[in-house]
């Protein structure tokens, strides 16, 4: 029975992942903005078999001085084996291009707040010498593209941060998992028309849990995005700039 803290627990990927943890009988602590939605999810996870489910309302953006808050959560949970960071927003690229505020706000939620959380938890995990930190980044962070580089920049920053953290925590035996989903059919992407590359949150969740179990470092979900992004990273600018990606 693992003790798992999930931030952004109302996101579709986080919820699907929590359902797998629940079937295994884990102890869960869920954080997200909307307490009402959290309690609906908590009830569901209890029926599915979670040993215990705690929920607290938490807003990742704005305040980064959360040490006491997190310390209390860990105490309630009785320790921590897995931290799963899944919150984020998909900003509208066009409106970011027109507004400094939108751009910085998106970066704040998708990157700065993650750094703040990880700075605190890295020390906890380093001191206890075990456990897993899993964070949802994105394939969008692998190369800046005109269609979503504000989102991509934040996810890229998160990926680099995790890379460094993994380096630091390797000697403590702590797993740091960077999750890079491709297109996922969730309420966050409801307005997109979906093609063959789109995956379901349940599928992403299974791959996340498998990567956690196998102590992976970086996982593309589904796997084929590793190949796609390798090609996208290798395409020279003079060709890339002719695309509308």
């Amino acid at each position: 029975m693992k003790k798992i803290l999930i931030i952004g627990a109302t996101s579709a990927i986080a919820e699907a992942t929590a359902r797998i943890f629940a079937l295994r009988g884990d102890n869960l602590f869920l954080l997200a903005r909307d307490q009402e939605r959290l309690s609906v999810i908590a009830n569901d996870l209890k029926v599915r078999g979670a040993n215990d489910v705690h929920t607290w309302a938490y807003n990742a953006s704005g305040q980064h001085d959360n040490e006491t808050f997190f310390a209390n959560a860990i105490e309630q949970l009785g320790g921590i084996d897995i931290l799963f960071v899944a919150h984020g927003i998909l900003p509208d690229q066009k409106s970011c291009e027109a507004s400094v505020e939108h751009t910085l706000n998106a970066f704040e939620i998708n990157a700065t707040s993650v750094f703040a959380i990880l700075t605190y938890f890295a020390n906890i995990f380093e001191a206890q010498n075990h456990g897993s930190i899993a964070v949802i980044s994105s394939v969008a962070g692998d190369r800046g593209r005109q269609s979503n580089y504000v989102y991509g920049a934040a996810k890229g920053a998160v990926s680099i941060f995790l890379q460094g953290l993994r380096h630091r925590l390797a000697k403590s035996g702590v797993q740091v998992l960077t999750i890079k989903p491709g297109f996922v059919d969730t309420p966050m992407t409801a307005s997109f028309s979906k093609g063959a590359l789109w995956a379901k949150p349940e599928q992403i969740a299974r791959l996340i849990v498998r990567a956690l179990d196998r102590k992976k470092s970086v996982v593309y979900t589904p796997w084929f995005w590793g190949g796609i992004m390798l090609i996208i990273r290798l395409v020279p600018d003079w060709i890339f700039h002719k695309t509308r990606l």
């Binding site: 579709a12 609906v40 009830n43 569901d44």
Partner: peptide, 18 residues
């Protein structure tokens, strides 16, 4: 598809709300 949560289960009677 997003209205897919269990509410409660009574393991005496087998009654599931979802």
């Amino acid at each position: 598809k997003y209205l897919n949560r269990f509410h409660s289960f009574d393991d005496e009677t087998g009654i599931l709300s979802c």
